Each structure stands twice: as C-alpha cells, then as structure tokens.
Amino acid sequence: MKIYHIIQGINNLSAGTTVSVGAITHNLTILGNEVFVVATGQKPKEWPYLGSLKLFENKFTKIGLLSIGDIKTIRSEMLSGEAVVHGHGVWRIMNLMPLIIPKKAKTKIIWSPDGMLSEWSWNYKKYIKRPFWYFFQKPALNRVDCFHATSLEEVEDIRRLGFMQPISLIPIGVEFPEIENLAPQKENKLVFLSRIHTKKGVHLLIQAWGQIANEFQDWSLVIAGKLDSDYGKDMVELSKTLHAPRISFVGEVLGDEKTKLLSSARLFVLPTFSENFGIAIAEALAHGTPVITTVNTPWQDIQTKKCGWYINNTKEELVNTLRNALSLHSNQIDAMGINGRIWMEQDFSWKKLAGKMQKTYDWLLNGGDAPIEIIEKQS
C-alpha cells in the first residue's frame, strides 16, 4: 500500500506530532507499506525512522507557503495511483492539501487534527484563525473521507464543528526504552518535558513550584523544551523573579538524553490547558515515571491505573497535588511508575496501533465491513 503522511514540518523532533508521525511511518513501513512523509522545511539533525522523506524548502516555504510548482509536484505524486493520504494538523498551508485532490480520485484522505480543533486552540488567536477557517481550512476538511481522532474528546471536537465523516479512534503509541540497560537511579526530580508554550501551563508550574520548593529541599524541578520563543524567555525570567530554587531549564532533549531524563525522574508534570492526546505523558509512563496532569487531557485513567494524578489546572490545585505527591515515600511513587509502564506496554505499543491504522486505510481503499475503531458517518 502507498501511504503519504502530510505535515507542515519535521525539523522539531521534540514536537509531539513530529514524533508520532515518525513512529507511525516507521511501523507502517515495517508492515510492508511504501510510506512517505511530505513536509516543508529542513530535515532534522536526526531522523531515526523508516520511510521516505519528501521535503520542500525554498523562499516560499520559509514564509509558510508553497510555490505553484511545489503544489503541482505534490498533487502529481499523490495522484500517481491508488494511495492513502494521511494529513496532520490544521491552520497551515500543508493542511490544505485535500483541496488539490479531486473527489473522484483513487486517493483516499484521512486527517488527524492533532488537538488543533479543541476549544482552547479554536479560541487562541481566533481573530486570525476565523477567516482562514471559513475560506480555506473548513473547505479542505470537508473534502476528507475520514478523520483520525486520538481520544473521545477529539471525536467531540470534530463533531462540534459540524463534520459528519467517519472517524477512526486510535490513540497515539509510545516507544519503550530499554531502561534496564541504562540502569538509572530514580532521583527526587520533577520533570516537565514538552513544547514551552502558554498552552502547556509552564507559568502555573513555576508559580506552584516557587510556593512549595522550600518545603522539599531534596527535590528539584527540571524544565525541558526549546526556549527560543518569547514565552520561553518569559518563563526563565519568571523563575528568577520568584526566586524559585533548584529549577533548571535544560532546553531541547532528544534520543538517549530524553530517555535518561525521563527514566531518572521520580515524577513528571504537564499542567496543560489543552491536549488531544499528550504524547509526553505516554512517554513518561513508558519510562516508569508517574504523571501529574490535568482534566484537559484524555488521561483520566491514570487514576484508575494508579499511576498518577488527574487535576484541574489551577495553581491552587497544582500546589496541593505537588505537596501531596512529594510527601509520599519514594517507594510509593516508584510503584506507581511500574503501574504506568505495564499499562503502556499493554495498550500503547506502536506495532499494535500501526496494525489498527492499516486496517482503517484498507477499509478506505477497499470498503467492506468497517474496523472496530471506526465511528460511522453521521447524517
């Protein structure tokens, strides 16, 4: 099967969508498919995934656009035979690709909003987004044959905006590190690892840490993520203004460094305002690290699985939860981490989820009975 994954860019390997696209293309290739990643911009310093890259980089892509020649090339490639186009995200030029594929083409289109249709995202910079939505993005998404959602919350976001196409409900997977080979020692270290963006609630975390840090002298806070935005720089200044002790900003971490950081941490925290999935949460659990996150993620099961805390994203609740969590004996926290690792191994392996995705693709191309993951079209 020929499969094209469409994404705006892949140069940021710390971005959740980039990681998930790389992982799914890798595992679909292992299953015997011919898989391509089509994106704008530069190739990242490392790309540890199978599958072919088709990257477009020129004066147009540097300002977020495509040339007419690029569009013709992409269109010709995707219409060269029977294929599946799987797009990721909204609000960018690559997210308008359904508009260039005729409805009668053999090519079938499935689209993953990747959390960008949530109410938080919908209202963030809404005065810029609304015109783009009605003139370009909505017509493009009306063209797709099927959506892919990673959670029931994302299914609701898709339906809320009036899209009635079938939806394939398949979560994002996670890679499982060989923690035993690294033999790390768990430390009293609270780790945040994600994009440094206001959506992720880093300001709440720094404020909460500043309030409780002196009560837990043997704990430290590590914030991992690129600091190249104004918000990132503001967070560094906020930590200084609050005189928050034992807090370190380590920048972007990838590969073995990420594995070492997550597996050596005793707790992981993501006080986010909106997530369709939250791959960093799954990665932390896979590394045997319990998680504190918010009701704005689809991770309510961390409570029933006894591997974390699921809270409202207010500073007060974050302070109380951190105080309770850090007061536990290390053996209690580490036992929660083991619970999370077992859960991830059972339900979130990329190999298993890639197989489910391939069944969706087969159904789109060939028809027949819908896979169990499909939520049927509504009239």
Rank of each mutant, 00 (worst) to 15 (best):
R195E: 12
L261Q: 05
E180V: 04
M78W: 00
P171L: 00
I170Q: 05
G41E: 10
D301W: 12
F348T: 04
G41Q: 10
N95T: 04
P44D: 08
N12D: 15
Y134P: 03
S112T: 13
D369Q: 11
L221D: 12
S112M: 04
G288T: 02
W209M: 09
W343A: 11
L262P: 02
V291P: 12
L242N: 11
I158W: 12
V90M: 10
E180T: 07
N27E: 15
R130W: 09
M164P: 08
F192G: 06
L318M: 12
Q378V: 07
E373A: 11
R195C: 02
K106E: 15
K103P: 04
G251D: 11
L322R: 04
L152Y: 06
E156Y: 02
V144M: 11
K260A: 03
S264T: 08
S20I: 03
P131V: 05
Y4C: 02
G340H: 06
L221V: 09
V84G: 12
I6A: 01
G32K: 07
N276Q: 03
K240Y: 02
V269I: 05
L117M: 15
V37R: 15
I247S: 14
I93Q: 05
I311R: 13
L55M: 13
H197R: 02
V144K: 04
I30N: 14
I6G: 01
T25G: 06
D230Y: 07
K233L: 09
I281G: 10
G255M: 15
G64A: 00
E257S: 15
L254Y: 08
H329N: 14
L182S: 07
G22W: 05
T107F: 01
T73E: 15
W350H: 06
S80W: 02
H148C: 02
R266P: 00
L99Y: 10
M94S: 03
I172Y: 10
N324C: 07
I179K: 05
A208W: 05
N312A: 05
A286T: 10
A149V: 03
G41N: 05
S52T: 14
I71S: 07
I101D: 09
I100H: 07
F136A: 12
L205I: 03
L169V: 04
A370P: 15
G115C: 01
E57D: 14
G32T: 01
L28N: 08
L182R: 09
L193P: 06
Q358C: 01
W120A: 05
E154W: 07
R143F: 00
L285Y: 15
I281S: 11
W350D: 13
R159Q: 09
G355W: 05
V21R: 00
L152I: 12
L50G: 10
H86S: 02
D157P: 03
P48E: 09
P166F: 02
R159K: 13
E153S: 12
E46D: 12
H26Y: 04
P44H: 00
A286Y: 05
W111A: 08
F163I: 08
L190W: 06
K359C: 09
K129G: 13
H5C: 11
N296L: 00
L96D: 03
M235R: 00
I302S: 06
T61G: 06
N11Y: 03
V191P: 09
A224T: 06
Q332E: 15
N312I: 02
S274D: 06
T289M: 01
S274G: 04
Y134K: 14
T73R: 14
I247C: 09
P44N: 09
L99A: 04
S67L: 03
